[in-house]
């Protein structure tokens, strides 16, 4: 892990010194991880593809002034999550959902045809995760799908570990109720 962090810092430094290939290497290292995290956040493959690329485009412009106060992964994860949240706010507005109807899960319009291919349980999980408040959803995705330790999640989100643990517990509780119908025990 230490070695990886050093390599990562070296790539960032080399990019900042003008080596464009160093950025390509960073993209190659993290593209799958970032994509899968975004996919679990927005629950739509085509949107996740676009948002993943947008994440790295944003990262490209921001990386020149990145100061390595956190790891590159922490930093780019934050970019990706912000894009996801902003994307879903825009989708909500586009679908003319009432301002007070903020708990309703929103899937992008073109997700319907894709979700036909998914089974019922996967669709139910999509809806359930999307119905989580954004902070709980971020923590849940980072903890359950990305398997990140609480400390790292707290660093990414700028929260305390206790707050992160609380968010995760609340998310699990909500999902337990929403998905009760599919539980077999």
């Amino acid at each position: 892990m230490e070695q990886m962090r050093e390599d990562e810092e070296s790539l960032v430094r080399r990019f900042q010194e003008g080596e464009e290939k160093a950025f390509n290497e960073l993209v190659s290292r993290y593209k799958q991880r970032i994509f899968h995290m975004i996919l679990k956040m927005v629950r739509n493959k085509e949107d996740a593809k676009d948002l993943s690329q947008e994440t790295f485009v944003k990262a490209y412009y921001g990386l020149k002034s990145f100061r390595s106060e956190s790891s590159f992964f922490t930093w780019i994860t934050r970019i990706a999550l912000n894009l996801c949240i902003n994307f879903q706010k825009r989708e909500k507005f586009r679908n003319f959902i009432s301002f007070f109807d903020i708990k309703k899960p929103i899937l992008a319009e073109n997700s319907v045809s894709q979700n036909v291919a998914k089974d019922e349980v996967s669709r139910a999980i999509d809806q359930a995760v999307l119905s989580l408040p954004s902070k709980q959803r971020e923590v849940f995705v980072l903890r359950y799908y990305q398997r990140l330790p609480y400390q790292e999640i707290a660093e990414i989100l700028g929260k305390s570990q206790g707050g992160v643990k609380s968010n995760y517990f609340q998310a699990v509780n909500k999902l337990k109720k929403i998905l009760a119908k599919y539980r077999t025990l």
Binding site: K118, D119, V121, S122, I125, Y144, V172, L175, K176, L179, Y182, R183, T184, L185
Partner: peptide
């Protein structure tokens, strides 16, 4: 109940 929930989540394709 929690084990059951995670069982459901594991079925996600």
């Amino acid at each position: 109940e929690i084990q059951s929930l995670f069982g459901v989540l594991e079925r996600e394709k």
